[in-house]
């Protein structure tokens, strides 16, 4: 691939392996995520997505291979990685006893940012949580918790954001809210690596897609490149039925957000 040295990739992974006992979860993963892009890591359950993500977030050590985030090596400079990267795990990691605002202030303080209160208010506004700011996070709905979780990850605008299955378990409307937030992040120049098991999510969001299967990245490319791997399309006439998601959103009136563009496939 023609890769001139000009912008270093935001994430570069080479030959990464990790086993748990006899179970080889990662068997030599190679991955590059260019700056400012949205990169989807697609794989079924057990493909190794979370393991890879946890190594990138310095929560887990690799057995062999290298990984750098924003120029920092995860093994040699974990502090640097933690400054640059923010992880949103599979389950909303919010403090239920604290209010939404207190959760955000806490993260801002732990990131050693000045004006944590102002930063918290800005995030609350951005994620439509201002009205719930002083309620305990334990009283939030699933979608609100997820938004708070995301907001906590984005405090201080880290240059690299990793989202591990960000929409698993969310209702359609909340899922679209998360997608909007991811797109907005990317517009602001943030690099986003997201793992997903939903093909549609990768199609909707990602500039590039890597398919992780049995501990290796077996294919990588843009959506168009991946589609080109298939035999040429044959023309068939199929009646276009609305999806259940279209129906759901029409009935509950979720049309305030931009409608998913998935129809134009």
């Amino acid at each position: 691939m023609p890769a001139p040295r000009i912008p270093d990739p935001a994430i570069r992974v080479a030959g990464l392996t990790r086993s748990f006992g006899d179970l080889e979860v990662l068997r030599g993963v190679d991955l590059e995520v260019s700056r400012g892009s949205i990169h989807a890591l697609l794989g079924s359950n057990g493909a190794g997505k979370t393991t890879l993500v946890r190594i990138l977030a310095t929560l887990l050590r690799a057995d062999a291979g290298t990984a750098t985030v924003d120029g920092h090596d995860v093994a040699r400079d974990p502090e640097g990685v933690r400054e640059s990267l923010s992880l949103t795990g599979q389950f909303a990691a919010v403090d239920d006893v604290l209010t939404g605002r207190e959760n955000l202030v806490l993260v801002a303080r732990l990131r050693h940012l000045s004006g944590p209160g102002t930063l918290a208010d800005r995030m609350l506004d951005r994620f439509s949580l201002t009205d719930a700011a002083d309620r305990r996070a334990g009283t939030y709905s699933g979608g609100m918790r997820r938004r708070l979780d995301l907001a906590m990850s984005l405090v201080g605008e880290p240059p690299v954001v990793v989202l591990d299955e960000p929409t698993t378990g969310l209702d359609p409307r909340s899922r679209i809210e998360v997608w909007d937030a991811v797109r907005e992040l990317s517009r602001g120049g943030t690099t986003v690596l997201l793992t997903t098991q939903y093909l549609e999510e990768a199609e909707q969001l990602a500039d590039r897609i890597s398919i992780l299967h049995e501990g290796r990245v077996i294919t990588e490319g843009t959506l168009a490149e991946l589609k080109a791997l298939m035999p040429p399309a044959t023309v068939e006439y199929v009646e276009k039925q609305p999806t259940l998601e279209d129906v759901f959103l029409a009935v509950v009136g979720g049309g305030t957000h931009d409608t998913p563009t998935g129809d134009a496939r």
Binding site: T58, L59, E79, S86, G89, F91, A93, V107, L110, R111
Partner: peptide, 13 residues
Amino acid sequence: QGGILERFRSLPI
């Protein structure tokens, strides 16, 4: 269990 410990550990603290 709640995952918040993991969040703290991924912060530069």
